[in-house]
């Protein structure tokens, strides 16, 4: 009785995290992998790993960072296993192209392509800052970089996007 109640509480806790952070997990995975289908796989694997290790999360306030770290590692493992090659934007698979599906807003369309073409090193801190609301010191912590390196990457990322958006 006691254990089934504990199991129910555990499941409830897990479901709450998933409900709150699922969108962030998916979008982070999608921009890391640049592939909707891979992002779904990565999120599935991440949820499984999070479920198995939920008891290790003691600080509720760290839940988002914890889940995004799991996504980051799962994405790395996925690519380690698959050994995928560099994506050529002119030769995308269907699920890669789905990420760039045409939008009614041409400006958004243009920007999405520009973000897609950023180097991983530039794209990831940008996603963490703009989408996840991380500070530069939190990004540095998440990516294992010095804060100065993060600032440089973000500055370069935006400079590249600005340059791309200025092109017709």
């Amino acid at each position: 009785m006691q254990s089934s109640k504990a199991a129910a509480l555990r499941r409830q806790r897990f479901d709450q995290y998933v409900a709150v952070y699922h969108q962030d997990m998916y979008r982070y995975a999608a921009w890391l992998s640049r592939d909707r289908s891979i992002a779904e796989d990565v999120v599935q694997e991440s949820l499984m790993r999070a479920w198995k290790s939920l008891d290790a999360l003691r600080d509720e306030a760290a839940a988002k960072q914890w889940l995004l770290t799991i996504v980051r590692r799962e994405n790395a493992r996925y690519f380690e296993r698959k050994r995928l090659e560099t994506v050529d934007i002119d030769n995308l698979t269907a699920s890669q192209a789905a990420l760039l599906a045409e939008q009614p807003d041409e400006e958004i369309d243009h920007m999405r392509h520009a973000i897609y073409e950023l180097d991983d090193d530039y794209r990831e801190p940008l996603v963490l800052q703009v989408l996840m609301g991380y500070s530069t010191s939190e990004i540095a912590e998440q990516m294992g970089l010095k804060q100065g390196a993060v600032l440089t990457r973000l500055h370069r990322a935006r400079a590249k996007l600005r340059e791309q958006m200025a092109k017709p």
């Binding site: 969108q23 979008r27 999608a30 807003d105 958004i108 940008l126 935006r158």
Partner: peptide, 10 residues
């Protein structure tokens, strides 16, 4: 614009 572009449909 960056923010809107990053917000993919989930």
């Amino acid at each position: 614009t960056i923010g809107r572009a990053l917000r993919l449909d989930v």
